[in-house]
Amino acid sequence: MGRPAKKLEGIGARLAVLREGRIRKEFAKDLGVPDSTLGNYERGDRLPDWSFLETLHQRKGVNLNWLLSGVGEIFSASETGSSVVDDNVVRLPRFDARASAGKGLIPVNELPVGEVAFARDFLRNLGASPDHCYVLEARGDSMWPTIPDGALLIADSSKKVVDDGRIYHFNVMDRALIKRARWTIDGKLFLTSDNVAAGYAPEEFTADRVDELQVSGRIMFTGHAPLPVR
């Protein structure tokens, strides 16, 4: 059985819990990262990359649901990281691509580069369909503060209907975007940014531009380091 989770705010604080009683330098070496990198993660100066998160899961049996959200138990199996069969676990494809919360980056490649385990109940509680979810990373500041630069995202590819006010992963020609959808009374769709102060202009889509727009999925979860004060 996993240890009961401590209710802590932020990935960095939860990482510190994982190495309780151990010197940080030794723990970092065990995980294959520099001590300075682990220090940045624990302070919240940087967000852990997916390679580091998968190492925690595979070697230490860390429940990534708990690490990212603070919900659930610390360990998904035993504290030694040994695997167990769990029908409640689904392995989401992870794409080595960064959908831009800005002006747009290269769309997600069709082939995933890895998998990340999540509890089906966790995804269902988000309102997502577990078997249609995938993981990617946001880059840019246009969706600040809702989605900061480097945030880890879970999207649901089964949710293709674009509802007003929700956030989606769009592919627009050769760009991948994370934007909020806004509909007008006359049926025009605008891809908008939450960071109004940055001056990002909404992108308009009318009937003659429909073939340029692909809805990859609705954003269901955002995990990120503690936000700095602006």
Rank of each mutant, 00 (worst) to 15 (best):
L15G: 14
F75D: 08
R139W: 00
H169T: 00
P226I: 00
G140E: 00
F221S: 02
L111T: 05
V135N: 02
A201P: 03
S76C: 08
R3S: 09
A5N: 12
F118A: 14
D141V: 01
A198T: 01
L53W: 01
S36K: 14
T80F: 11
L177V: 15
F27D: 05
K179S: 12
D86Q: 09
E9N: 14
G102E: 03
A138P: 03
L68D: 02
G223W: 14
P107M: 10
R94V: 15
D121Q: 10
S129R: 07
T37A: 10
A77P: 02
V90Q: 14
L38H: 03
F118N: 09
L227S: 03
S100H: 02
L191Q: 00
T80E: 11
S216M: 13
R218W: 00
N171G: 05
D174T: 12
A207V: 14
V229F: 09
A151S: 15
G114Y: 06
C133H: 12
R98D: 02
P34L: 00
A117D: 13
G10A: 09
L123E: 07
G114D: 15
N171S: 13
G150F: 04
G127Q: 06
V196N: 03
S69C: 03
K103N: 05
S76D: 09
V71D: 14
M1G: 11
E54Y: 03
D86L: 07
S83T: 12
N88V: 08
V162F: 04
V210A: 12
L213D: 10
V84Q: 10
R182K: 07
V108S: 13
N65L: 01
K103C: 02
V71R: 11
P145W: 06
L31C: 09
A128I: 06
S69E: 06
R182A: 04
N63V: 01
P48T: 02
M1E: 01
G199D: 11
G32Q: 03
G127E: 01
E203K: 08
K188R: 05
L111V: 06
